[in-house]
Amino acid sequence: MSGLGTALRDLVRPDPGADRLVPPTGMGSWLTVFTAGVMAFLAVFALALSLASGRLADRWADALARTSTIRISAEGAQVAAQTEAVLALLATTPGVASARALSETEERALLVPWFGSDLPLEDLPIPQLIEVTEEGSGYDAEGLRLRLEAEAPGAVLDDHARWRQPLAEAASRLRFLGWGALLLILATTGAIITLAANASLSANESILKVLRQIGAQDAYIARAFVRRFTLRTLGGAATGVVCGLIAVWILPSGDTTGGFLTGLGFSGSSWLLPWLLPVLCAIVAFVATRAAAFRKLAEMT
């Protein structure tokens, strides 16, 4: 633990003596910065996907879990009579907080996105909809269906469960998919940085031998590589995050009709979350490079 603590302290405290040991050029440096940048850019989208899925799942759950709909299809005057009967029935049903019949304007507004505003809706046999809001632990759906069947034969209860469940599951899986993608991106970053660090260590093997010969300890030798790769990764990832945030920011803004894709983004304090990505990438680089350096030095013994 003390070795790790010292290594972390060395990371933030520059040592010109150790930092100059590794030549400042080479493919490894560009590869590290580029990889960190690209991976952080992708990670921003994975994070945005996760957060958007989470918001969507919550929104659907909130919007649907507490409401249900009763649809009344009947001939002419029967509609009004059955609507009255159903509202009366609901008023005495335990677990129902409120119930109201949607007005013609509200029903028209629901259909306009599908049929357009020019369609003569008044000529269509559109059922009357009653919106039911639950309270407490909700109502007994089966019991309510039986009562509706007896008192309003044209009424059908839709408690949303049939399509709410798959939607909630899909959103939840999408959220986990986003987190999984984020983990894979970090793992890939670690793998590529390990490769770059190994290449750098092999290319500078003569330097390692010189340092060994003059009495440098492994931690001192590793420090030069670890610090360089970690800071490069931090810088690359920060750049990637900035680019990712700009890309997310210029996506079309969300609205009620835009659906999921236009909701892909951050809101409020979640705009700060992506800034954890450079730190995570730097931690990955620190661990990967330190492991690679100590492994290489052990092999040279």
Binding site: Q213, G215, A216, D218
Partner: peptide, 14 residues
């Protein structure tokens, strides 16, 4: 050990 050897090498010029 490796660190001990490193300390000893500081007393050896090669």
């Amino acid at each position: 050990g490796r660190d001990g050897l490193a300390r000893m090498r500081r007393r050896v010029g090669v």
